[in-house]
Computed example of a mutant assay.
Amino acid sequence: MSWSDDLDLDSETIWEDGVFIRIESVDTSLALASSLARAREYAMLTQKQLSEKTGIYQSDISKLERGNANPSILTLKRLADAMDMTLKIEFVPKK
């Protein structure tokens, strides 16, 4: 398979099982999970290393990254601080 500009999607477009959907329809917990996993990888930390820095069990970090947990704001802040990042939560109007 070769890659071309024709295969690129804009940042607000995703496909699911061959059906076009808008990113706004993605479950919030899954978006948070994906964001956490990307942030951890950007910080070049394993789940175990992040666990050691935060005192949060590695299994709980795994659950967060799979979207199987409902973290508190304080937990998210601890994770952000350990990755030397700022936590940003915002409300945006529905379209």
Rank of each mutant, 00 (worst) to 15 (best):
M1E: 08
S2A: 11
S2V: 10
S2T: 12
W3C: 13
W3D: 15
W3H: 15
S4C: 13
S4R: 12
L7A: 14
L7R: 14
L7G: 11
L7Q: 14
D8Q: 13
L9D: 07
L9K: 03
D10P: 03
D10E: 08
D10Q: 06
D10S: 10
S11H: 08
S11F: 07
E12D: 15
E12G: 13
T13Y: 04
T13V: 06
I14N: 02
I14M: 04
W15T: 00
D17F: 04
D17R: 06
V19C: 00
F20V: 04
F20L: 05
F20H: 09
I21L: 10
I23W: 08
I23F: 05
I23H: 05
E24T: 03
E24N: 05
V26T: 08
D27W: 01
D27G: 00
T28N: 10
L32A: 05
L32H: 01
L32M: 12
S34T: 09
S34Y: 02
S35M: 03
L36D: 11
A37F: 06
A37K: 15
R38V: 13
A39Y: 09
A39P: 13
A39G: 12
A39H: 11
R40W: 12
R40E: 14
R40C: 14
R40K: 12
E41T: 12
E41M: 11
E41I: 08
E41R: 14
A43M: 11
L45K: 08
T46Y: 05
T46M: 07
Q47F: 02
K48D: 15
Q49F: 01
L50M: 09
S51C: 07
E52P: 07
K53V: 00
K53G: 01
K53L: 03
T54I: 06
T54Q: 10
T54S: 10
T54H: 09
G55K: 09
G55Y: 07
G55D: 09
G55T: 09
G55V: 06
I56P: 02
I56W: 04
I56S: 06
I56D: 05
Y57Q: 15
Q58T: 09
Q58K: 13
Q58S: 12
S59Q: 12
S59R: 08
D60E: 09
D60N: 07
D60L: 01
D60C: 01
I61T: 01
I61V: 04
I61Y: 02
I61F: 04
K63F: 02
K63G: 03
K63S: 05
L64D: 05
E65N: 05
R66T: 06
G67Y: 03
N68M: 11
P71S: 09
S72T: 15
I73R: 05
I73D: 09
T75R: 08
T75G: 07
L76A: 08
L76K: 01
K77R: 11
K77M: 12
R78S: 14
R78H: 11
L79H: 02
L79W: 04
A80H: 02
A80P: 05
D81T: 10
D81G: 02
A82P: 00
A82S: 06
D84I: 06
M85H: 07
M85R: 07
L87H: 01
L87P: 01
L87F: 02
K88M: 00
K88H: 03
I89K: 01
E90M: 02
E90R: 00
F91A: 14
V92S: 14
V92A: 14
P93G: 11
P93N: 13
K95Y: 08
